[in-house]
Every structure is written in C-alpha cells, then in structure tokens.
Design a protein around this nucleic acid. Structure first.
Lengths: 234, 234
DNA sequence: CGTCTCCTTGAATTAGATCAATATGTGTGG
DNA sequence: CCACACATATTGATCTAATTCAAGGAGACG
C-alpha cells in the first residue's frame, strides 16, 4: 500500500535548524535567503513502512529531506534481487539527480516524514548563491565518498567484516552510542551488504558468541567490544 | 619505481578541446575565462606503468586530468588486497576531494600523461563563475552515479555478470567499438570487480567458448555477441 | 635463448548461498 | 488474558560459485 499523506508540520527555519546531525545546507548558511522560500514549497509528507517514495525512472522533480524515520534507496534486478544503495536518516537529503529521472527507487524503511523541495528551486538558488552552491558540491562529494566506501566494503570484505563495518557505521551515525536500535530488518541489512538474511543472522550470532556484541532483542545491538569490531576491518 | 617527469605538452585551450569524450568542464564553457589561467598552473606530468601518482592520505592540493593512458584509484586493505574504485581515461578528471587529504591512492595503469591543476584555483573559479560551478556539481554527480552502479555490480552480481558489465562499459567508453584493447591486466580487472585473476580469466575463456566474445590476444577482446552480453545483466 | 611477467588451466577447498525447519515475537480478535 | 495468524529471525543441513593452491603456457625483452 502506497500510503502518502500530506500533513502539516512546522518546518520553518527554526524547525529545520533543530534537526540533529544536519549534514547539509539549509541549516546555517541560507537561513535568510533561500530557506524560507524553499521551505514553503511543499508540505511535509508521511510514508508508512515499506511504502515507495519514488520509483526508478520517475521524473526527478523533487528532492527530499528526512525529518524522521529512515529511507532506503535501491535498485532491483530482473530476478527480483535488490541492492540497497544507502540509508538516510533524520536531516539527510536524498533524491537529487543529475539527469531528469531517478536512477534508484526510494522507500520508507520505517514510518517516516520527509519534506520535498523543488529541484528547480534548489538549482536556481545554487546558481545565484555562491555559498549555497559550494555546499551543494560538498554534499555531492560527501555522497560520493560514501558510495566509494560502500564499493570497497562490497568488493573485498568477508561477511563478518561487512557486518562489523555496518554496525560501526550505524553507531557513528547515532553519535557514537554503543547501543544501536536497528531501524531496518535483516533483509535490508543483507541487501545493503550484498549478503543473504541467513548470513547476516549467523554472522551476528557469531559476533554475539564471541562477546563482541550483545543482542537484547533482534533489533537492539550493544557494541560490547568496539575495539574487536574495529580490528576486523583493520 | 616512481618515475615522474615533468614534460612540456601543448595543453592550451585548443589541445584540451581536442580530447575525445571530454566528460567535464574546461572543455567548452570556460575556454576564455578560467581555462588559460588554470592550464598554465603546472606542466604536464608523465608517469610510467604502475607508478603511484599520489597515495592515500596525501594532501589533496592538486586535481588531475588524464591526457593519455589510464589511471586507477584504489584502496589497500591491511592484508594487502586491493579494491580498485575506478579507471580514468583520456579527458577524465580524478583526485578531487572534499577533505584535505586523498581518500584513495592513484596509480598509472599504463604509461600516462596527466595535467595537474591547483584545487584551490578550481574552487576559486567555481566560486566566481556560476556556469563553471554547475559543471562542477554535474561532474561530482556523474561520479556518484558511477560509484552507485559499481556498488550494484559488486553487491549482487555473479562473476559472469561482472565481467560482462565491465566489457560493455569499456566498449561504451571507446565509442561503442566492438573491439576492445584492454589497457589493464587481469589483476586490475579482478580488483575492480571484486574477483580473483583466476576467476576473471576462467570467466573470459568461458565467454569465448560460448562464442560471446573472441580473444585474438589476452589484451584484445572482440564482442562477437553483444546481445548475449547485455542479456547477462538483464 | 633464457628469464620474467602475465595469463591460463586444473584440482582441492571454503565462504556464503540455498533449501528447509523451527523459534520469536507482534498484533488481532475472541 | 489467551489463542491464533503472520512477520521476522534464528538455526541446521546441504550445495555451489568462487577462492586458493599449484602447474603450465605464452609473450616480451634483454
């Protein structure tokens, strides 16, 4: 079911600035100039778990920012298998494209709220505001760095190394907390790491047996031995 | 051996514009404004096969454009294994970073000539010239798209699919020619696709047996049945 | 003509996938 | 609150694609 309800959310400058871990523009620099105009371009949208936000090939007229929840971008193969390209959490942007169409699809991992912006508006703003444009580039380059790291992970690492890196990455994203609440299912983790759910599960129980992590519940992970996790990836 | 000789090459606007398949700026838009200033910032450099251009962690003060030959960017793991992130051919740029240091190392796949530009100069130009800045973003986004495709390839494809996709990509880069002259060794192909040299070799001979490709020599591939190759990836 | 590097091929091994079953929730209606 | 259905997660038993280990070829170059 593709539940998509337009709701009213305060997303003026103040609200935007309050999102934690803001990785991108719209936070500080352009609070005066573009912010207001852009923020009011569209109401926030709510998506229920697993509902599509846009599909591969859809016209890419909007760019999104996550307010709450988690979004995944992915591609499907003809045989139904899926590769998840990235997860996006609160404050992160997704959906920006170089061409006219989306190259990946986006789906709600959990129930989530996102704010859509007109891509055209962003581009115009970037064209007139130099500082904004620089943040634009910076954002793209950071995405690129992430994608490169992901490639390295997928190409030359064992299942344990992949899972370890994934957990460390998640921990880092939640301010380095040792306890992680996984917003996504094993299936998602597998499709992100290029593994099956069974291998993900087995690997995690093995890490638990080795005392490297603890799993109070399937969705809650405690990094009991962060050093050991880091050592796995060298 | 790290052979790196400064040589004099005509790389003024005319020479630059003549590189085929120019994927980036400096070609058309800024021929008047920034081009001349940037082009004269440094003499072209020659690197011999397998010599390093920069290392992971080096200060990223320069950005490079390939004049001739092929360059690879890669990361090394503690166990000595290597993941090649990308290959860059004539006219392509590499070495642009978001932070102060290079996140990958760059090496000459074949003997090659590259032109270094001052990153600072590019950034300044981007700050003053809107059109240049837009091409800058466009370049970063295209790199991102490539990296995402690469992730998909590494995560969820079999050896044959990887090799097939690689050959098709190479062909596309050389204007869709059915005959490809591989500039890189099997080792490089393996490290790019997340496979061993043996698997790359076996896979290619299998493709040859199936009549999908022909290999007059190890480094020359003819795509005899492009359709079959494309079908492999669906 | 030998040496070195790169490529191919073969046999044995293994990490991870697949197939199949059981467990652990989690929400629903009685 | 319990019983049931349904999702998601774990665990076990094979199977297989790709790696690893080990020889041979085939060019390139002095």
């Amino acid at each position: 079911m593709s539940m998509q309800i337009a709701i009213t959310v305060d997303h003026g400058p103040a609200a935007l600035a309050s999102f934690p871990g803001m990785p991108w523009m719209l936070a500080s620099s352009t609070a005066g100039l573009g912010e207001a105009a852009l923020a009011q371009s569209k109401p926030a949208l709510r998506f229920t778990q697993d509902s599509p936000i846009y599909d591969e090939g859809d016209k890419a007229k909007l760019v999104y920012k996550v307010v709450s929840g988690v979004v995944r971008t992915c591609k499907f193969l003809s045989d139904g298998r899926r590769q998840i390209d990235a997860f996006y959490g609160a404050g992160e942007m997704f959906g920006l494209e170089i061409g006219s169409a989306h190259r990946l699809c986006a789906e709600a991992v959990s129930d989530c709220i996102v704010i859509p912006y007109h891509r055209h508006g962003l581009e115009q703003l970037a064209a007139t505001d130099g500082q904004f444009a620089r943040q634009f580039v910076s954002y793209a380059m950071r995405c690129l760095a992430r994608a490169q790291d992901h490639s390295l992970l997928l190409g030359r690492r064992s299942a344990v190394q992949k899972v370890a890196a994934f957990l460390l990455d998640l921990s880092e994203r939640s301010a380095g907390d040792d306890v992680i609440d996984l917003p996504m299912a094993r299936h998602d983790i597998g499709d992100y790491l290029g593994l099956t759910i069974e291998t993900v599960s087995r690997t995690m129980t093995q890490l638990e047996r080795d005392g490297v992590i603890a799993m109070p519940t399937a969705r809650r992970i405690r990094l009991s031995n962060r050093l050991a996790l880091e050592d796995l990836n060298a």
